[in-house]
Amino acid sequence: MARFKREKKSGVQTINTSSLPDIIFMLLFFFMVTTVMREVTLIVKIKPPEATEVQKLERKSLVSYIYIGEPKKSKMFGTKPRIQLNDQFARVSDIPAFITSERQARDESERKFITTSLKVDENIKMGIVTDVKQELRKSGAFKINYSTRKVGKIDFNRLY
């Protein structure tokens, strides 16, 4: 007795879509893992300078960011370069407290690997950057990274 009747093939064949959810889930997991939620909204304009000899920043969870640039809302805040820590404007004197809080947020064994990434607009003058660096030295945050855009070759003519 034939338990299963062979179905008669007729007309248009349908594609088996039962594995579609699995494929979509795979993609979903990929994007879930690679996604990095932006923790801060930038309130300063930042266009990083160009460089060729760049290194990748490893271990993003151990990086704290300092943003320096002109305020985006220049009508409200003027065009003087400002420092942004977390979600607000800060002064140079706020940096030690920021470094301390960043350190406390990390596991004790990982604290010595914390890197401070300086995201600075290319048209900023070095004065404010020097101040920030001095403050970082005093706070003991010696590992820094100047955030740059990777290019194949620097166009020296646009430097002047």
Partner: peptide, 23 residues
């Protein structure tokens, strides 16, 4: 999937690493 596609930022942070001297 679409939510994560939209929110994902693929930018890799690159830069020049330096070590500051102690004060």
């Amino acid at each position: 999937l679409i939510f994560f596609l939209v929110t994902t930022t693929m930018d890799v942070d690159t830069g020049i690493s330096r070590k500051l001297p102690p004060p």
